[in-house]
């Protein structure tokens, strides 16, 4: 990895990422590594290391954070948070770090397939409504167990739900993300890793996302 240049350091990185003030105690991080040791994703993607990510955020080093493939692998299972001795809510930090990556054009491919369902939710008030055939299947299933063919969500509920997304600017933000140019992500935390960690089967860098989209 090339050395960071002066302009890559940002003393305000932490406050920029934690824009919503959801992880106020990050500076208390002990760098103990309990988060990483208990992380199921780190067990499969060894270059994913929540402790190092916290360190980079506090140090203000964004150079490998934003275009990192690793940050898109977190499950949000919150094992890290549950075991953190100082209760750092790492998942809420990850959520916001990903906003920053997206706004810089990274990782769009990891959010757009999911956002497709949000746009649909604005029509139905329910998330993960499938396509036409899926809907028919649901209606058959529900009818067979003696309940209304479709979950009872009122028109009023849908209207207000949609309005919330419009009025908070969330819909515009999603549309904006849709129209951005995607920049490639890479495994940016590989240095210091044993090379053969990546030669076994599924861990090969660059083989993800066969199924999305």
């Amino acid at each position: 990895m090339p050395r960071e240049k002066d302009r890559d350091w940002d003393d305000n990185l932490y406050s920029k990422i934690d824009h919503y003030n959801l992880v106020e105690n990050l500076e208390q991080c002990l760098q103990c590594g309990k988060c990483t040791g208990n992380c199921p994703v780190a067990a499969i993607t060894p270059s994913y290391n929540p402790r190092v990510i916290v360190n980079d955020i506090l140090a203000g080093s964004s150079v490998r954070l934003l275009d990192s493939e690793e940050i898109w692998r977190c499950f949000w299972c919150a094992n890290c948070y549950r075991l953190c001795p100082v209760d750092i809510h790492y998942p809420l930090l990850m959520m916001q770090l990903r906003y920053m990556a997206l706004e810089n054009g990274y990782g769009l491919k990891y959010v757009l397939p999911i956002n497709k369902f949000t746009f649909r939710a604005l029509e139905k008030g329910l998330t993960f409504v499938p396509g036409k055939r899926g809907v028919e299947k649901i209606m058959r299933l529900r009818t067979s167990i003696g309940v209304e063919p479709w979950p009872q969500v009122s028109e009023k509920a849908i209207r207000e739900y949609r309005a919330i997304f419009e009025q908070t600017g969330a819909k515009a933000w999603m549309e904006n993300i849709q129209n951005m140019t995607e920049k490639p992500v890479r495994f940016s935390y590989l240095e210091g890793r044993m090379a053969n960690e990546y030669t076994k089967g599924n861990n090969t860098p660059g083989t993800d996302r066969q199924s999305a989209g």
Binding site: Y99, I114, N115, T127, W173, M174
Partner: peptide, 14 residues
Amino acid sequence: TCCSGYILTCSGYK
């Protein structure tokens, strides 16, 4: 309506 938490935590919206 939907609790709208899932896609939030996917960073799908603010």
